[in-house]
Amino acid sequence: MNIFVCIKQVPATNKVQVDEKTGVLRRSGVAGKMNPYDLYALETALRLKERHGGTVTVGTMGPPQAQAVVREAYMMGADDGYVFSDRRLGGADVLATGYTLSQAIRSVGDFDLILCGRQTTDGDTAQVGPAIAEYLGIPHAAWVSRLTPSGDGVDAEQQLQDVIETVHMPFPCLVTVEQDICMPRLPSLKTARAIGDKPVHMLGLDAFPDTDEAHYGLAGSATQVERIFPPANEAEHEVWEDGDNAERLRRALAKWKFI
């Protein structure tokens, strides 16, 4: 089974602050790390490989420094890794990111299974995975808490509101995994020594089947961020002392739609 895992480098903290006056974000040179949810996708891939054979390839779209997360994936046991980096890929929303990754995956090889994390901690949309599947014209299952190879494909347990529905999908297919699917291993020093300075492949737009830059990055995006602002502090910091506090609480519960 040949597996491709989509990973992303995200800021190491999401504690960004917004300057109330200027509306500008204050960030204190935070370092990057692998999107924590992608560790579960990678671990799932590594376990499938250990049990059923095959290869695990990881790939990320991002700036050149995103090599760091590919190296981390090597230390966990990934066989091969790519960074898709090009100035013309900048400013991508879900539509353009999904397209870029679908093109990138096509240019890297033929895969049976593509795995994604449930969401990123910066983009936070949980949409990139299904978008890639649509572009590739393959079935997908999201929020998957268990994945077992079966026949010509996999059985995936997708967690919906009140039920878990297990769907069978033939290869090739795409799955986004939940956190409870497995416990990710730690990067191992032994593996790190064994791989030495194994290269990370860098690919730009010119390596893709579609080289029309209008389909990528900001040009290929449909959404535009107009404004970023601090959340209004909707929660009241109120002190209630005298009076009918039970009635007041009942009314507040109704206002907040708990009753």
Partner: peptide
Amino acid sequence: ATSLGRSLAPRLATRFRTGLTAD
């Protein structure tokens, strides 16, 4: 923005090559 909705909507929006804003 339920589990089902958030699996369905990105597939559908991509089919129309248009924007989708999550959650």
